[in-house]
Design a protein around this nucleic acid. Sequence first.
DNA 1: CCGGATATCCCCTGAATTGGTGATTGTTTC
DNA 2: GAAACAATCACCAATTCAGGGGATATCCGG
Lengths: 208, 208
Amino acid sequence: MKIAIFEDNQKFRESLEFLIVTSGDMELCGSFEDTNRLLQRIEALMPDVVLMDIHLPGKNGIDAVKEIKEHFPAINVCMQTVFEDDDKIFASLCNGASGYILKNTAPEKVLQAIREVADGGSFFTPSVARRVLNNFQQQPHPGEFTQLTDREREILKFLVEGMSYKIIADKTFISYETVHSHIKKIYEKLHVNSKSEAVAKAIKRRLV
Amino acid sequence: MKIAIFEDNQKFRESLEFLIVTSGDMELCGSFEDTNRLLQRIEALMPDVVLMDIHLPGKNGIDAVKEIKEHFPAINVCMQTVFEDDDKIFASLCNGASGYILKNTAPEKVLQAIREVADGGSFFTPSVARRVLNNFQQQPHPGEFTQLTDREREILKFLVEGMSYKIIADKTFISYETVHSHIKKIYEKLHVNSKSEAVAKAIKRRLV
DNA sequence: CCGGATATCCCCTGAATTGGTGATTGTTTC
DNA sequence: GAAACAATCACCAATTCAGGGGATATCCGG
């Protein structure tokens, strides 16, 4: 299992190197303090897992992940950084990182994270996992959808699928005008006044 | 740290009980094979963490989480189950679970998960973490959005915000007819033929 | 039995959207 | 230098939507 490191802090980089080479099952195939010639380096080394810092000379780690995943989707990247804010976490994950651990993570946990990531799994520091989860849960404002009747919810779903009044009328065996009525009611309850707004709200509040 | 268990398989429940009582830092405050009188039990015991199975006599574990979190938001719940399908995972997490581990998880990892969850963090089995992550990333079909030009993307965003052609024209300082043109092009590229479909696709493929 | 909520249907009008078929001007690319 | 693309604008016809009126029928709780 080949590991590459991108980390600008020399002390920290050296301790990571030590951790890898003494791990027993990993091979350190590269260790860099910047992201210069990123793709050439990656291509030459073809690591299984990349440990990536965020603050780096050259392009930052978040953009680096994107590039790596674009060109080498099979390589799994694990972020390792001091940053714990939603922006950086989500940007990294959206760009394709498979793991996200903080720098205060215990050495054996770091190795564990690398192994999981290499194995196609994911590993988050608990506090990061919590943030991901919170974003995931994003409770619908209680009482903004519950107030929709079953029929209204059903019709809203059809709207989300992009159907016209007429098609919905056919699908549900009710008249065009009834669809119209329901939708008027939906708009009123959701405080919107067009199909696209209703669709946007429905999806964002996870009705789909 | 008080732990309560809900698990219908007797063997498995007993091994969990053993694990907890021998952990050193945890106290087993309750262990049940069904969800009857769920809230009364919880209220009487006030555990810090609940280990919850999904398949249970009485109401299932997913609904149970919802009830617990509604009435006792401070209690953290960790699912422990054999199910690894997106539906059950996401339903549990949306209902407020803080962790999700599979039944084949090593004992020490289970304890670790409980500790993390009690601490306000989250813990996922790596394969579950991966699913959460995938849902989070929702890869845009490569080349379905990348093919949109900057201008088109910009206009698509306005559509998602629910704006009309006219408003978009004003916002972008171009004519109504140009907006019309761009939108025609967008529909063509996304293979849709209405605002709401475009909006749905844009949101689902994470353009927002 | 009444009021309220839900589901169904109808009409009308003005506004917005959609789908064609153009055209012009740059820029980039081969 | 031609071809391809992006961005801009225009006109027209058909369709769809949005918002405003109404009207029944049912069911449910008090």
